[in-house]
Design a protein around this nucleic acid. Structure first.
Lengths: 345, 345
DNA sequence: TTGTACGCGTTATCAC
DNA sequence: GTGATAACGCGTACAA
């Protein structure tokens, strides 16, 4: 009968106290690193803790402290890689803590979305939540968190909230840098595949495009702008239209990788070679960007850093302002961009 | 001062009991649907619960019941889409329950992996865990769960455990079906890009390939088998070798989509047209399969069903055996396969 | 520096 | 059917 330590037989703080010959309050002090403790006592208790392999019961702790150590991840994201990368970053930040991450996809389009989230938050009584785009752009959701006294940090492409509740990627500037790069390569006629109006990220990327084009004094009239909704198919359709424009653009910036992949598809159907006859830039640096042919130049979010920062803001609200809020994505240069061949007219 | 209900002011079972004029045990009975309750009492209590918007505190419940309602997802997966789809399936299964999902990536290669998981399980005292491949193939991990009295269900490509602790995809048969399809299309010279030996899924897919080839009495000597480690680059390298073989294979089955994408890349570099000169089949049906050109024929796991079933097995152990354990993946037919052009020799 | 008594919100026991 | 009362494991006044 040796060696078993089943669920029902886990040692409690009382066991530790009894065996160490102290009160459980003393054990509690050891666990919580109270400074006023005799060194001998501390070491004795610690050795018993180690010997029994005692681990405090988080449920009991949560009950006594009137707060738990669960943080939620709210997302409604079509981009699996991004959600998973974010999870990874958060988990890295909380690795040495007693926090755990609980995930909750939400349906942006459901009329009961807010009620669903409310039920979830009331039931789980989370320490706080991290909210990913695009659902992070929903101000009612943030308001709900405040109302319920639930901490939150939003991730977004613009200044959605104050710095204590936000990690922000500067999509506008990142798109500007991408356009600068295309111009450096010699492109003058650059088209945009914009994302859906409802998304703040899409708006920011569109603004970044227009600002950069204006800065370079390049034409970006409506014939050079098409719109999609972040899917492969709509990217394909948008590119089909753009590739009919005369003179044909020598480069297309697509507001996400999926649409860029669709654009690549459209070019191939027309026997327009990428990158020789058409350069292509995407956004997000999803797995697809690196694994299509040609590998695609794209904008990469510093997602791990953002996730880490968001988690720390949530866990240590007092120092939330000290964590960086602004992050700049960088351009990953791959084979889908080259200098225009010169016969673009 | 009306309308606020902050974290610190949530109504408790005592509030409900006091206002309804009953004991809290009675309220508890209402919550837990005890059958022996006066109808009037029940309705009275229920109306108070509704009025106060009372929600039981899960921490207190967990403490009293000596078990919580958290299920963990253990994974070390390179395939983000699969992990997220699995999450989706699990969450669908537990939607109406009080269970929540907490995620935990693990590092398969870390020497401290088992200790890390042990710490995690002891700390969180989960109701149980769901384990995704390839880490699900680790028997020590399952043994650890049993030792800790933590429920578990593994997802795998073979009979890794008894039916109460396993949802199994029949990769061998699925690959067989894929090969059958290629043969139907007229292919006779079919090559395999196998996965890494350490993965059970890779072994099963390899067996499926050889069994099917034998069934059709086709040659599948070592010159027609190359190995990769499930990455794009190794798929590319493997295909480079296979495409040098004479007579050149007219079709390649790659053991996952990433390697298939690599093979596509290799073919393109050699100006071997897919599918005209070479048919290609992948495995997993990840996002990449549908979004490359040509769209790739691949094997799709019924991942949502498997996730649902796994979650239900975990939550209702008494009926675990009733949940299906075996799932057959099906072939998604896309443009990367066609009949061989006949000049393959 | 350490211990006692009690509270956190729920379920379980066992009377009535 | 219903209600006192005692767990569950831990934290915190406050006393010693």
């Amino acid at each position: 009968m040796a060696g078993e330590r089943k669920r029902d037989q886990q040692p409690t703080i009382n066991d530790v106290a009894r065996i160490a010959g102290v009160s459980k309050k003393t054990v509690s002090r050891v666990i919580n690193r109270s400074p006023l403790l005799n060194k001998d006592t501390r070491e004795r208790v610690e050795s018993v803790i180690a010997r029994l392999a005692y681990v405090p019961n988080p449920q009991a702790r949560a009950l006594a402290l009137r707060r738990n150590f669960l943080i939620g991840l709210l997302h409604d994201n079509p981009n699996a890689q991004m959600v998973l990368s974010f999870q990874e970053g958060v988990l890295e930040a909380i690795r040495e803590t007693e926090f755990a991450l609980i995930v909750r996809p939400v349906d942006r389009h459901s009329p009961s979305m807010l009620d669903d989230v409310r039920t979830f938050l009331e039931r789980q009584r989370l320490f706080g939540v991290l909210i990913l785009p695009p659902i992070s752009e929903n101000d009612e959701l943030a308001e709900l968190c405040r109302e319920l006294g639930c901490g939150y940090v939003r991730m977004g492409s613009a200044k959605l909230d104050d710095d204590a509740h936000l990690v922000e990627s500067n999509d506008r500037q990142a798109v500007g840098n991408a356009i600068d790069y295309l111009v450096e390569q010699g492109h003058r006629r650059i088209a945009l595949i914009a994302g859906p109006d409802g998304f703040r990220s899409a708006q920011e990327r569109r603004k970044g495009f227009h600002e950069a084009m204006a800065r370079h004094q390049l034409d970006c009239g409506p014939e050079l702008v098409a719109q999609g909704n972040y899917t492969f198919e709509t990217g394909l359709a948008a590119a089909e239209r753009l590739l009919e424009v005369s003179p044909r653009p020598t480069a297309i910036f697509a507001s996400n990788d999926e649409m860029a992949a669709g654009a690549l598809h459209a070019a191939r159907q027309r026997e327009i070679d990428v990158p020789r006859d058409l350069s292509l830039v995407g956004f997000d640096d999803t797995a697809i960007a690196a694994h299509i042919w040609p590998p695609m130049t794209t904008v990469r979010w510093p997602i791990l850093s953002m996730a880490r920062s968001a988690a720390l803001k949530l866990i240590y609200p007092a120092e939330a302002e000290k964590q960086p809020s602004k992050f700049l994505s960088d351009l990953v240069r791959r084979a889908s961009v080259t200098s225009p061949s010169g016969k673009s007219g």
